[in-house]
């Protein structure tokens, strides 16, 4: 039970975020109005995605250092969940942008950067699917994964800051962000970052455990097959 304290924490944080996010008073701004509450649900998806991709890259490095296939498995599943969060981030961003900026996909450096980033990670899964040998697949995709992460972060965090962007905190100096983010927002958005990330790890953990069971079953089946084959061979030898 003590091992699962972080799951209880996830539930508590998410309950707080969803309830307070809908009910607490927020700054009154033109155009946005109540839609400002989307700041509690849209950016945390991206933070969770980036954290999980960082985890995925770390496990790829770990795989390359130690050569355990289990590390590769964790790395893939982290990327998988991260992609889910990214897709959700894209859809929610689209909905929000339509009502705040007037376009489903505004020509913004951040949105375009993220589109390229998502394609990078889709290519990661295509690459994995195209290699049959387990060890080779793990090695090649681990190397690719590290490169993908190294490209993804500049694409969505650094490049949008160098130009003008519709997203707040981009274009100009994001270091002054502390003056234009209201406390009533920070109070909810920061726990939301943690809560969404923890939920991402929770979902990933379920899939990792499932995949471990699957690979164990595969191994068992192969063992049974080889044993039955050998015994059949023996029988053929003894009574021809």
């Amino acid at each position: 039970m003590l091992k699962h304290w972080w799951k209880a924490l996830t539930v508590l944080i998410l309950a707080y975020v969803f309830i307070a996010g809908l009910m607490s008073p927020v700054p009154k701004l033109p155009i946005l109005h109540e839609a400002i509450r989307n700041t509690f649900f849209h950016p945390p998806l991206w933070i969770a995605m980036m954290t999980m991709l960082l985890g995925s890259a770390i496990f790829s490095v770990r795989y390359l250092r130690k050569g355990k296939l289990d590390d590769d498995l964790v790395s893939v599943e982290l990327a998988n969940t991260a992609l889910l969060f990214g897709v959700l981030g894209c859809i929610t961003g689209s909905v929000w942008a339509y009502f705040a900026w007037g376009d489903l996909w505004p020509n913004d450096p951040k949105t375009n950067g993220v589109a390229v980033g998502m394609l990078l990670y889709l290519a990661y899964f295509v690459l994995r699917g195209s290699v049959d040998d387990e060890v080779r697949r793990a090695r090649i995709s681990s190397v690719y994964n590290i490169f993908a992460f190294a490209v993804f972060i500049p694409l969505i965090l650094i490049l949008p800051r160098l130009t003008d962007s519709l997203h707040p905190g981009n274009g100009g100096n994001p270091g002054f962000n502390q003056y234009d983010a209201d406390n009533s927002i920070k109070r909810i958005i920061r726990p939301a970052f943690v809560g969404f990330t923890l939920l991402g790890f929770w979902i990933t953990q379920l899939r990792v455990r499932l995949r471990r069971v699957e690979s164990q079953l595969d191994e068992q089946q192969e063992l049974e097959k080889s044993v039955s084959k050998r015994s059949a061979n023996m029988q053929n030898l003894t009574n021809p």
Binding site: H33, N38, F41, H42, L45, F99
Partner: peptide
């Protein structure tokens, strides 16, 4: 006040 946009976003998530 566009609260239904927030509802739609939460629904998607």
């Amino acid at each position: 006040g566009k609260i239904w946009v927030v509802v739609a976003v939460i629904g998607v998530v």
